[in-house]
Computed example of a mutant assay.
Amino acid sequence: MRLDALTLKQLRALIAVADHRSLTAAAEALGQSVPAIHSQIKNLESAVGKALLARSVEGEGFSPTPEGEDILLAARRVEAVLSQAAARIRARTAGFQGQITLGTVSTAKYFAPRLVRMLRDRCPDIEIDLRVANREETLIGLQHGQFDLAIMGRPPRGELHGAIPLGPHPHGILLPPDHRLAEADGFDPSALISETFLTREAGSGTRILMERYLDRLSEGYPLTIKAMDSNETIKQAVIAGLGVAFLSLHTAVEELKSGRLKQLRGPGLPVMRHWYLIVPGDTPPSAAARRIAEEIEGLGGTFLPAVPVSA
């Protein structure tokens, strides 16, 4: 490999083709000609000494080869590092002493803005950029180096050593207030598993936890599960009587306080997990990231919502 022959233009061309699966679409996205994109990819492959893109089996579009995936991961990290450097320069220009990007899973959006407000009061010289995404996008952001810190409920295996527990994260089954199980102190598993369960997309942390919980109750009985695109949609659907939901109780504090939703009560509920702060371990954190991490840990979970206890 001739690493000194690599250029940012080549790496950006590779990212664009991988994202759009087409030379033409990549050229349009970058404002260049198709021959220019083709030339950049060929020069990059020549420098690496391996083919980086291959046509799909169906013959439509391009996909990265294994070597292409390696270079693509490096290219995305380069872009992320440059983007963070630019953000830090802008922050200093605006009078800040440091800047960090804090990534959170979407469930954390119910307390993340309050946390950022608390951090700004404690560290007014550090600019904090909050990014909210689903679990998959947050994991990709960590992998690509887009986040200085991240908050999630189930840390990836590769980041376990850098996972700092922040506080309890209760999950439960939410019911409309007039549901037949809403006032019960216990429940018959057969009555529960006959319900329609409204949940997030496959692969979300909450759905994985729900499936593990219900597997113990259903003993192979087929469940009716309907995926929805947001916690807000799920809550409104439960209130409307379209089903029940297994959700983080931190997403439903206001609805539980007002009585628009009820918690199912019974053995094993709520299901307790924890929130974690992830400090990526592949590169040393900046001084600003270390300081913010220490502040978050020092808050002792006081920024987490207080979940009302069902009467």
Rank of each mutant, 00 (worst) to 15 (best):
A25M: 11
R114W: 02
G31R: 07
A75F: 03
H20D: 00
S106D: 10
L73Q: 11
V57S: 15
I37H: 05
S83R: 15
P64H: 01
R92N: 01
L11D: 04
V57H: 08
V78K: 12
R21G: 05
L115G: 02
V116W: 02
V105H: 04
S63Q: 14
L102V: 06
R21F: 10
K109D: 12
L3R: 14
T93F: 06
Q99A: 14
R12P: 04
V34Q: 15
T101D: 13
V116S: 06
A16I: 08
R55Q: 15
P66I: 04
L8I: 05
Q99H: 15
R92E: 08
L72V: 05
S63D: 03
L6Q: 08
S63V: 10
V78C: 13
E28F: 05
I100N: 13
R117F: 02
A94G: 07
T93D: 14
H20Y: 02
K109A: 07
Q84A: 08
A51V: 06
G61H: 01
I100R: 09
Q84L: 13
A54P: 00
T104A: 13
L3I: 09
E60M: 04
L53K: 08
A27H: 02
G68M: 02
L11W: 02
L14T: 08
A27G: 12
D70L: 15
S83C: 05
R88Q: 12
E69F: 05
